[in-house]
Amino acid sequence: MTLAITVNGKTRTLEAELSLQDLLQDLGMTKGRIAVELNGKIVPRSQFSSQRISNLDSIEIVQAIGGG
């Protein structure tokens, strides 16, 4: 079955269930400092591989940028 998820406010469709690590890889987000929230809760980096993505999950991926 396909999964509908939201990543940084945009809807995406996944063809198959996968881990957060796989999703980040698909998005080209494996390098650099990021932090990830899944449905409003932080997912520690150590759990990226074990964290499964489910239908209707909402994911936020952030980084540090310039600011005062």
């Binding site: 940084n8 406010g9 650099g32 400092r33 936020e60 991926i61 980084q63 540090a64 940028i65 600011g67």
Partner: peptide, 21 residues
């Protein structure tokens, strides 16, 4: 030095350096 926390731009090039680099 202060930094802001914002969504990553999913379209951004992989090799683009980030502030903390």
């Amino acid at each position: 030095i202060t930094v802001a926390i914002r969504r990553v731009n999913l379209g951004q090039k992989k090799e683009e350096p980030s502030l903390l680099d």
